[in-house]
Simulated scan of single mutants.
Amino acid sequence: MQPPEQGGAAERFAQRFNRLNESIYPATQERPYTEQEIADQIQMSVSQVNNLRNGRSVPRGDRAMRLAALYGVRLDYFFLPDDAEYVVEVEQHLLAIDVERRGLPQMRANRTAGSGAGSGAESPLDDEVRHIAEGLAELPSEFRDVVGTLVDTLRERMGLQPRGRRSR
């Protein structure tokens, strides 16, 4: 039997994992990922993915990071409380994706769950740039400067302030 906190974490992980899988998938695929496709992407067995989806376990850190990357969210999305700012933001993006898939009018910038729309973004492209910038923290240090420079260049070409230097 799992300790109570492990069971709660596994159930929360499963709920968020399933919610992401319902909404985040390639438009060309027109359906959520299968357990086999997820297993192939994050280097797990299908039975391990099934255990994650059913709240029977939580993945190791490296696999959880791959899963977060697959769906375009930060790793902490799977573990934060429901009322955490980032969780609320992701849920808003998932709702926007669901609305768009049903053919209702919606801003097309809301393609990934972890982008920064709704946080005062200057343009739809800024959401994508912000999403890239958020991922910088997870990169090895030797890549951060290169990617950071690319993000700053993109922001400048869009007429936006470089990262970390917002005008008030």
Rank of each mutant, 00 (worst) to 15 (best):
P81V: 12
A109T: 10
N50K: 01
Q6G: 12
L67K: 03
R102T: 14
R163T: 11
R12V: 01
R108E: 11
N110L: 13
S119I: 14
L75W: 04
Q161T: 12
A9R: 00
F78P: 00
R101H: 07
G164I: 15
V151G: 02
S123V: 14
S47L: 13
N110R: 13
S119D: 15
T34R: 01
G135Q: 10
L20M: 08
Q36G: 13
V146C: 06
T34M: 05
E122H: 00
S119E: 14
H131E: 09
M65F: 02
D83C: 11
D145A: 13
A68W: 02
A121M: 07
V147L: 09
R19F: 08
S115V: 09
G120W: 10
S57G: 05
D152N: 08
F143E: 12
V146G: 08
V58E: 07
S57D: 09
M107P: 04
T112N: 13
A39M: 12
Q48G: 10
M1L: 10
S57T: 15
V129D: 07
A9H: 00
Q15P: 03
R16L: 08
R157S: 04
Q29M: 00
R56N: 09
Q6R: 07
I42Y: 04
Q92A: 08
S141F: 03
Q48M: 07
M65V: 10
G118I: 08
G120E: 14
A113S: 15
F79M: 11
D82M: 05
A121P: 01
F78H: 05
G8Q: 04
Q161C: 07
R168H: 09
F79P: 01
E128Y: 12
A133Q: 05
T153P: 06
A117Q: 12
